[in-house]
């Protein structure tokens, strides 16, 4: 279970690097402080990814919300309530070790399980769309348990209404 938390952190860091790739080049002595102040704008998609955590993970052929996942979704729900203009798409994904059509159904289940938990925490269902990608969009490209663990996921993607 600790491993899961570690992974969430790693992914969030990666995402942060991807979205702000050029900042590091001009870093100087006061860079750290500047970066702090210039961090992602509150309520932005980047703010959500970096400061809240945009994904939860599932066991093999599972779609129940684990304790780790609950903690992440609770943070997501708080953030979403703070920024009521934001709408989201919940993407459900599966690892590569299943058949294509079953995995589409499984991804749908995972996206919906995350959605239902957010709704149970008071997020308006009208703000949430779901989509399943099955095994079509892995985030980790390896072919081992470490990669599959990262790929069995539901990702909350901030869409309309996010500040930039």
């Amino acid at each position: 279970m600790r491993k899961f938390l570690g992974l969430v952190g790693a992914v969030a860091l990666l995402a942060a690097c991807e979205t702000a790739p050029t900042d590091g080049a001009n870093a100087n002595a006061s860079g750290d402080a500047a970066a702090q102040k210039l961090g992602p704008a509150a309520g932005s998609a980047q703010d959500f990814v970096v400061n809240v955590g945009d994904r939860v993970f599932f066991g093999f052929d599972q779609y129940n919300i684990s304790a780790d996942a609950r903690s992440t979704l609770e943070k997501q729900a708080m953030w979403l309530k703070k920024f009521p203009g934001v709408t989201i798409v919940l993407e459900g994904h599966a690892d590569e070790r299943g058949t294509r059509e079953y995995n589409l159904a499984l991804g749908e289940r995972r996206a919906n399980a995350a959605k239902e938990y957010l709704v149970s925490l008071g997020v308006d269902a009208m703000r949430i769309k779901t989509i399943s990608y099955g095994k079509e969009r892995p985030v980790a490209l390896g072919h081992n348990e470490a990669a599959w663990t990262q790929n069995r996921r539901a990702v909350t993607v901030v869409t309309v209404g996010a500040g930039s």
């Binding site: 749908e108 919906n112 959605k115 239902e116 399943s132």
Partner: peptide
């Protein structure tokens, strides 16, 4: 075919 509704196919 299959159709998914509220997570169920």
């Amino acid at each position: 075919m299959s159709m998914a509704r509220d997570g169920n196919s």
